[in-house]
Amino acid sequence: MKVLVCMSVVPDTTTKITFTNNDTSFNAQGVQFIMNPYDELALTKALDIAEPAGGTVTILHVGPADAEPVIRKALSMGATDAVRINAVPSDSQFVAAQIAAYAKDKGFDFILTGRESIDYNGGAVCGLLGAMLNIPSISVITQLSVSGQTATIKRDIDGGRETVSCSLPFVASAQKELCEPRIPNMRGIMAARTKPLQVTDPASGTTHVNYVRFELPQPKQGVKMISADNPEELLHLLRNEAKVI
């Protein structure tokens, strides 16, 4: 069994987001970068399925060399090998095109991504990859099991949940509840140092969108405090001042 897990590298969740160059780029100064939390789930699930079957899990990242410590972390969690496509991940479509170009003739049994990357929140790579590779894409999954050539999957839908089955190969995106993320142990960390990390050049690909400018949300005007003994006042304000109920 051969599995591919796509990983994005994102600012730590506690990061206070700021921008530089006249708000045209993210200010990465002093920011700690981590594996996208959903991708930790994707990787853990892939390992849980592939390891007992004697299979392999390849971790793939599209991005510059700064990501290598995070790629090593993925290897220490148990990934067999890693590939870094050396290009700036300018948007989901470019990233998906790179992944598709890499994966198309490798015979992966299935591919996992995260539900979305918590920096650019595209939530798009799974569907894009599915169409580019002409395989089913099943997004926002909370359960996955593979038996022979068939996968059984639970996915979130609007206002509910659905169990679907499909045959291999497919691509799916991991949502919370799929599993608890693995924490690398000492042996894993030692082993990761010598696991293969291949760096490849990007395939040609177009970027259809251009990030022009960033903006922070408007700060609140200040909070209006209401006495705990006067919930009527709160309801009155919500109805007549804020007009939201």
Partner: peptide, 16 residues
């Protein structure tokens, strides 16, 4: 205009 950084910011994106 799209939401980015999980609600922490917005981005203006030119679709080409």
């Amino acid at each position: 205009k799209r939401g980015v950084f999980s609600g922490k910011a917005f981005a203006y994106v030119e679709m080409q």
